[in-house]
Structures are given as C-alpha cells and as structure tokens.
Design a binder for these strands. Sequence first.
DNA 1: AATGCACCCTGTAGCCACTACAGGTTCAAG
DNA 2: CTTGAACCTGTAGTGGCTACAGGGTGCATT
Lengths: 134, 134
Amino acid sequence: MTAFTIGRAAQHSGVNVETIRYYERIGIVPAPPRTVGGQRRYGQEHLRRLAFVRRCRELGFSLGEVRALLQLVDGRAYSCDEVRDVALRHLDAVRRRIIDLQAMEKALDEMVSRCDGGSVPECPIIDALFAANG
Amino acid sequence: MTAFTIGRAAQHSGVNVETIRYYERIGIVPAPPRTVGGQRRYGQEHLRRLAFVRRCRELGFSLGEVRALLQLVDGRAYSCDEVRDVALRHLDAVRRRIIDLQAMEKALDEMVSRCDGGSVPECPIIDALFAANG
DNA sequence: AATGCACCCTGTAGCCACTACAGGTTCAAG
DNA sequence: CTTGAACCTGTAGTGGCTACAGGGTGCATT
C-alpha cells in the first residue's frame, strides 16, 4: 500500500502542497481519500497525475490546456490528433512569445549600449523611453 | 490649451482608459485636474508620462520597475548609471526568459515530432508528459 | 431651453496561477 | 501521554489589468 501524505506527494511530484490543494479545489486533480481525521492520502495514480500536471506547467501549458489534455486522457479513446493539436497550438504560442521577447531584447540592448556609462547630459535610455514608438 | 479627456488621452498614449485610471489609483501617474463635473482633463505632460509607461510595459518592465524609473526621472539629477542598472537587470531577465522558452520550445517540438499523425497505439505526447522530468 | 447620447464617473468583482497567512486539528515518534 | 511537525479550512493577497453595474457629465442638435 502506497499512501502518501500531501507533503510526501508534494516532494514526490514536485508540486507545492498549497498548489496541490488548489488543483483539487479547481478540479485539476481528483480529491484523494482521507484518513479518519480528515487528512489526504495519495496513491500512485494521484502522484502520476500531479507529475503530469507539473510537466505540462513546466512546458508552459495553461491550466486550461492541462485540463483539456487531462480530459482527453480521461475519456479513454482520445485521439492522438487532438493531443497533437493542443501541443502544436501551444508550441506556436511559445514561438510567438520568443519572438516578442527577442524584439524586447534587441530594443533594450540598443538602448543600453547607447549609454556606455559616461555621464552624458541626458540619459539616452530615458530619452529612448520617452521617445515615440519604435 | 491642450486638455484631453481620458478617452483622447488613451488614444494618444496607447494606454487603455481603464488602465489609465488604474495607473492613477496605484500612483504610477499623477491625478490630473478635473472639470467642475468631475471629469479628468489631461495635459501634454500627462500624455508624455503615459506614453513612457506604455513604452516601458512594451519592453516588459514590471510596474515596479517603471515606478523605479519614474522616481529616478522625477527626482531630477537622476544618474544615468542607476537607469542603466534597472535596464540591464531587466535585459538579463528577458534573456533568461528567452532561454526558458527556448527550452520549452525544444521539448515541445521533440514531443510533437515524435507523433507524426499516425494512429499509434499510445500517444507519444501523452507518454512524454507522463514520463519523468527531462 | 430641452434633449439625446457618447462619453465619463466610482466601486466592485473577475481573470490566472498561485502564495501566504491565521487559527485550529491530527498523527506519529519518543 | 506529551510533544511538535505536519496537516486542515478559509480567506486574502499578488500583478496587471479588464469588465461590469449603475449612475453623472458635456457637447451638439433641435
């Protein structure tokens, strides 16, 4: 018998104790059985699911997406295409985000390099931030 | 005399009407004068500041960082070094974020490409998500 | 002067994904 | 049987907005 307390489940799955309770509350993970005193006891299947959620979150899936993936998994007979679709959409979003951040990086880098430490009369970074778009 | 309503100020600065009121509430921008009836009227300096905040936000600065930058600007005699420091720290954070996202992208890409549409018995994406870290 | 209506006002609640308490209870070791 | 770490619930806070509800204002037109 494997019965983990929430603390052990947290250690094992990498999901914070508070977060596990939060996931239960919002229905991302099922409520586990309780001891007579009311404490949660987790089995292997719960840990597996928690680790799944954690992995998804590490990959940047929103909880909505995670929910969608779990529904596909739970209704056995999920189609690979549906899963692939969720993943591809997310991959696209990640790529767009990277492009956005790279644009920020470029703009910041240019701003910072324009100001190379000399005590110029006006700060070129502040000037750039006050300047119009672009 | 330039006196913009909040709507005009929003158009002009690119900051949403609700967001302008929010910025005023949290002290990012000063409260403008009002008409007798209580409506806000913005001058050039307000617009300039709103545009500054907007530009900072576009570059990914947090409102905390924006606040810090504005304090440097407001206390005239800000040092360029201090500004540069805020910008450099943020640039670092942006770069770290890009690296994180690129790792996600790689992992997602590998997952998705392992599943090339064929109806395999088990979905490799789901398998990968259920698998341990890495 | 009256009316219409687009815009403005405040205040509150909601979003996401947690995190951090307060104030109390349970479990297991010694 | 006592200790104390870990657990429980419920609520409130985070950041950065956004979206109402329910009302008031300001300007153009009639």
